[in-house]
Computed example of a mutant assay.
Amino acid sequence: MVQDQLRAFVHRYPIVRFATRQIRVHLPRRFGGLDPSRVPPWNRRFCLDLPRPADDRRRVGPDTLTLQLPGDLTVPRRLAASGLSRHEPGSLASFMAILDHTRPGAVLDIGAGVGVYSMLAAARSRCPVFAFEPTPELASAARSVSASADLGFSVVDLALSNHNGTGHLRRALHNDMCNRLVRTARLGFAHITVRTATLSRWNETAATYPTVVKIDTAGTEPDVVAGGLEVLRRYRPWVMTKVRPDRGVEERLMALLDPLEYRWFPISGAPPYEARTEISGRASPAWERMWMLAPEEPSSGFWDSVTVWREALKKCRSGPA
């Protein structure tokens, strides 16, 4: 227990984590020493290619971004290594196709992390974009991404859930993409208190017209949907949600969404994706596990757009700034 609390304390504060690693590189392996070549830098600075279809005539947004983000965050490490070409390519292509084919309105990126989806929406559309991220260091990184090339999407320090007030966010020790709200009375260094709100309450205050909603909250996606049912009924946005298996997520999502008459598509394989009558976290690849919830039957032109964006994403690399 003490060891876990100590590890959580070190993980909670980036400067402590960085200093601890700098000390450990000088220790022998038998005393917990680290290989210096595998210790992340304090910051990563790199250029990132953004996708653009070959027949794009709008020329909206930049072709590349120069990013400087904390070195030990998961997504910046992956982007610096392989760019967008290997970062959830099926999900990103479907997201961009939705932006091409839906009516004008706001894009809500719930569980944004450093803001990859928000970045692409802001770079390739003129929609207002809102990135919801309660983890302080991830929200700070998302603001840095927003400032790059004046993308200007809004970062909201808020955890969307099924209640208004506050909640306990548990930091995952080995992957910051897995931070999630938990119900617990025992707090430690692995937990922080964050503001929470329902999507319906937030939207009532913000007065947006949501047309695209992406949800990735590490297992609490049904809570987000439950808190946003009024928004889904009223505005009928396209929804993309991560579905992880074995947490009861599938059953809860189906119970909430079935009355809304959405069409459910696992993002798996080559488009067009096959509509399903059940939502299963194992129906899509483990590295994506994203489902597209369509308020209407996607057209053939929509599936063509998914293919075009997938081809554009294959060309997106990264390099030193």
Rank of each mutant, 00 (worst) to 15 (best):
L92Y: 04
A93R: 03
A93F: 06
A93I: 00
S94D: 11
S94K: 08
F95H: 06
M96E: 07
A97M: 14
A97N: 06
A97P: 09
I98T: 10
I98F: 14
D100I: 02
D100C: 07
H101I: 13
H101M: 11
H101V: 09
R103G: 10
P104Y: 06
P104K: 13
P104S: 07
P104M: 10
G105Y: 02
G105N: 05
A106C: 01
A106M: 08
V107R: 00
V107Q: 01
V107N: 02
L108S: 01
D109G: 08
D109M: 08
I110C: 13
I110W: 09
I110V: 15
G111D: 08
G111I: 04
G113E: 09
G113T: 01
G113Y: 13
V114C: 09
V114D: 04
G115T: 03
G115R: 03
V116D: 12
V116Y: 07
V116I: 13
Y117V: 00
Y117A: 10
S118G: 15
M119C: 15
M119S: 04
M119F: 05
A123I: 13
S125F: 13
S125Y: 10
S125L: 12
R126M: 15
C127Q: 14
C127N: 14
P128M: 11
P128C: 08
P128E: 11
V129L: 11
V129S: 08
F130K: 04
F130A: 08
A131I: 01
A131R: 01
A131Q: 03
F132R: 03
E133F: 05
E133N: 11
E133H: 01
T135Y: 15
P136A: 00
E137K: 13
E137C: 12
L138P: 12
S140V: 14
A141H: 09
A141S: 13
R143G: 13
R143H: 10
R143N: 09
S144Q: 15
V145A: 05
S146F: 05
A147V: 09
A147R: 15
S148V: 09
A149N: 13
G152D: 02
V156C: 07
V156E: 09
D157V: 01
D157W: 02
L158F: 01
L158G: 01
L158T: 00
A159F: 14
L160W: 12
L160Y: 11
S161N: 00
N162T: 02
N162D: 15
H163W: 13
N164G: 14
N164D: 14
N164A: 15
G165P: 02
G165L: 05
T166W: 12
T166H: 12
T166G: 10
T166K: 14
G167K: 03
G167S: 10
G167H: 07
G167A: 08
H168N: 11
